[in-house]
Design a protein around this nucleic acid. Structure first.
Lengths: 330, 330
DNA sequence: TTGTATGCGTTATCAG
DNA sequence: CTGATAACGCATACAA
């Protein structure tokens, strides 16, 4: 286990450290025999270059930082799966942090990550973010960052998102086509990009079918359970909605639970933006708009690594929009 | 962003690098004034020691490796939460890998982790493991390892588990007290520690109530969906069980789904060993035995860090057993 | 083609 | 009390 170094190899083979380094690096100017000897010996001794020494030398770590609000959330854990897949394939490893929806922790995570010299950052913004000024310093210095799912407004950023507008539009349209008119929307804090886009999709569908938008049917909730419950309860008591659209992943479950607690109406259809795998097992049924989390992760990592490795010189900022998958009961 | 180094400070203050280092380290023999000057300047310039340089010097990385079968699993993501909490508190960061239930990937992860010079390893073994011979090398060298949830048999290891026997016993007893006698058990591969303990708990409960164990009611399944489905279907058709005990986390959901598909009997109670947060929302109801995942993670990390930091000299190997929480509908 | 020297950021040892 | 120097593992410019 006592890891072997190029120094050990050099000593054993009676050659200089640099020769060993060159042989292993396949550098120019190296005698074929010497090279073979070194490579074979290294193989035999199971030599592995010390990544820490490399990092120190090259001032990079071959690691990517990932910040998500919460790991224990199907969408994010699936996205992380995609990120890891691509990262490991390309020789990077992944350091995961959770912001727990707190901007403060997000900032602290970012500092940690930079102290650790990650080569790039993948981030889905916390729900309590006012802005991304805490990233300004890095953005100005062209530090590689890719935002996914919850992205900032600025066009000067790489982003991977789903077509939130379309997903919300389709969901609302589905409910309208079921004859519903008073469709409640429970949605994430207005600061988030997803909130705005999904709300717009919802309103646009209503407009298409000439249904007036009732602002009192729209409620913003952060991700605490009781908030969702309050919203649902108030809506049920005050507005008598004939359908519910839960516009955000974790919110969807909290809302579903609250609905089940406060209403036994089975004629009120429920639609949620969620990657929860078990929605189809629920009674009453929860129709879902599912995000291609794995692909989001993959694509984000690909862009980030391309940026890091300078494989997209001059290409400018990219925004990738993926489609959503609709699971509606016919 | 261009991180400032101890060298920059020395130059700016016209003193030597070593003096700066000492001032910052609060080492012995240092003039109070000099120290103050350095500390203030470092503060002002937002100096952060380069962890990579430290790692190289000290030959450790202040990072912990974590290997779990799957992140996108409530139990494991909760456990990781606990691990991270303790790790960050004590100044370590966490590198997470997934074995995807493959021993091959587990081995590759371990190699990766060691190349990265993690200071210790937290691992929950993959379901396809034959043994832990791939860890022998590290175990022999006293490399700090803590196993959690899915642990090896050897007593020469730190382990954090739940009382699987008791949990399974209680679950079975609950079903017996509901008047059930032909209780089917669907359980993980026999190689896993959890499998053996839970099966023993199940059998012990039957014995206590003088119900003969019918081996044909016990089915082992790995974690693929169709396997669970086959098992449930076969049991329903061939054995007519009057209750189901699903003895493993991911299995539970697959089995539940299969049961719902192949049977509409609502008089057959279901109990599952699972941390799935939404069990109470399901119809038919899924009674659960919940593992204190967060605490398992916390405790594992604590032990590991104590081992790493030599805070438990001479204490020998520790096995911590935590209780399960029962969510049975009365 | 190979070896020597240097530096990445830090701490520790040894002189002064 | 402070400074110079070596060392951690590696890659590389320069010298031979």
């Amino acid at each position: 286990m006592g890891s072997i170094t190029i120094k050990d190899i050099a000593k054993a083979l009676n050659i200089s450290i640099s020769t060993v380094s060159r042989a292993l690096r396949d550098s120019y100017d190296i005698n074929a025999q010497t090279k073979q000897m070194v490579v074979e010996y290294a193989e035999k001794m199971n030599y592995r270059p010390n990544p820490i020494a490399l990092s120190l030398k090259e001032n990079k770590s071959r690691s990517l930082g990932v910040i998500v609000p919460e790991i224990a959330n199907t969408f994010f854990s699936q996205a992380i799966n995609g990120i890891e897949e691509v990262a490991y394939e390309r020789g990077y490893h992944v350091v995961i942090f959770q912001s727990h929806e707190s901007q403060e922790r997000e900032i602290s995570n970012i500092q940690h990550l930079f102290a650790r010299k990650v080569d790039g950052l993948l981030i889905s913004l916390s729900g309590s973010n006012k802005d991304i000024s805490h990233l300004d310093e890095y953005r100005k210095n062209n530090f590689p960052i890719v935002y996914f799912d919850r992205v900032p407004e600025t066009p000067d950023a790489h982003k991977v998102v789903v077509d939130n507008f379309e997903g919300a539009f389709k969901a609302t349209e589905y409910l309208i086509q079921k004859g519903k008119k008073d469709i409640a929307l429970i949605i994430s804090p207005p600061t988030l990009s997803i909130t705005q886009e999904r709300t717009a999709g919802y309103k646009s569908a209503l407009e298409k079918y000439n249904i007036p938008v009732r602002e009192e049917l729209i409620r913003h909730c952060s991700f605490q359970k009781d908030e969702a419950e309050q919203a649902i309860k108030a809506l049920l008591e005050e507005q008598e909605p004939d359908a519910f659209f839960m516009g955000s992943d974790r919110l969807a479950l909290n809302c579903y639970e609250a609905f089940k607690k406060w209403s036994n109406r089975r004629d009120i259809p429920l639609v949620g933006f969620t990657n929860l795998g078990i929605a189809h097992l629920l009674e009453p049924h929860l129709n879902t708009i599912v995000q291609p989390a794995l692909d989001i992760g993959r694509k984000s990592a690909e862009i980030l690594l391309d940026v890091i490795e300078n494989k997209r010189r001059g290409k400018g900022f990219e925004k990738v929009t993926l489609g959503t998958e609709l699971n509606f009961r016919s």
